[in-house]
């Protein structure tokens, strides 16, 4: 369970999040939409502890979460496999090297395993995020624009993965600009606008 009460955050004395409250239950897959600059990324960053909140309460019972931001969020100088191992270590998560190998070939990144991540294209970096999410143990996933820069093959890989997470009743909160896709993927839809959050219950 993740419960937010009256969360506030301002930039340049302008409130971006102006008293947001919501709660997410285990097994929910929640999409977060809203116009540009509505504070979607800020909300995700506050939930993951990267950005500080001005006020409000965040209560949660999830043992572990994984945040995948808009930027690659990995060390450009390290190779993908080094980055994966590092992030797993930071999350106290033991990775089986055979599973990692298999994931690299499943996601079509086997040839780039040992190169500096700097040389990877946007699409490959995005695949790497999905791969990371598939390898790690997490109870809550915070994913900012999971589908950006993915090609068709990548999108279908991602779609399969997403459905399997839903099957396992894992909790996901993600930002997506594509309304049609996010409605299909999510069980609940949040809309962030004018600093306030509403749940879209039209469906």
């Amino acid at each position: 369970m993740l419960e937010i009460r009256n969360l506030k955050k301002s930039f340049f004395h302008q409130p971006v999040l102006d008293g947001i409250s919501f709660s997410i239950q285990e097994g929910d897959s929640v999409s977060l939409t809203g116009p540009n600059g509505a504070g979607k990324t800020t909300l995700l960053k506050i939930l993951s502890g990267i950005t500080s909140k001005d006020s409000g309460e965040i209560m949660q019972s999830f043992k572990s979460f994984l945040y995948l931001g808009h930027a690659p969020g990995i060390y450009a100088g390290l190779s993908p496999v080094e980055n994966i191992n590092l992030i797993a270590n930071l999350h106290h998560c033991a990775l089986d090297s055979q599973r990692v190998d298999k994931a690299f070939s499943d996601f079509g990144l086997a040839n780039h395993k040992y190169e500096a991540s700097r040389v990877l294209s946007q699409g490959m970096l995005q695949r790497l995020k999905w791969m990371l999410a598939s390898l790690m143990d997490w109870e809550l996933l915070l994913f900012d624009e999971p589908y950006s820069a993915l090609d068709e093959e990548g999108q279908s890989l991602a779609g399969t993965l997403f459905q399997s997470w839903k099957g396992e009743r894992k909790t996901i909160l993600f930002v997506d600009h594509n309304t049609e896709r996010s409605q299909k993927l999510s069980s609940r839809q949040f809309i962030l606008q004018g600093g306030l959050l509403e749940e879209d219950s039209v469906l």
Binding site: S48, F65, P72
Partner: peptide
């Protein structure tokens, strides 16, 4: 600068560290 490139620092900050 290593931390800023690719916003790698966010991986550290969002981890339980």
């Amino acid at each position: 600068a290593y931390e800023s490139e690719f916003d790698a620092f966010s991986a550290i900050l969002s981890a339980p560290v």
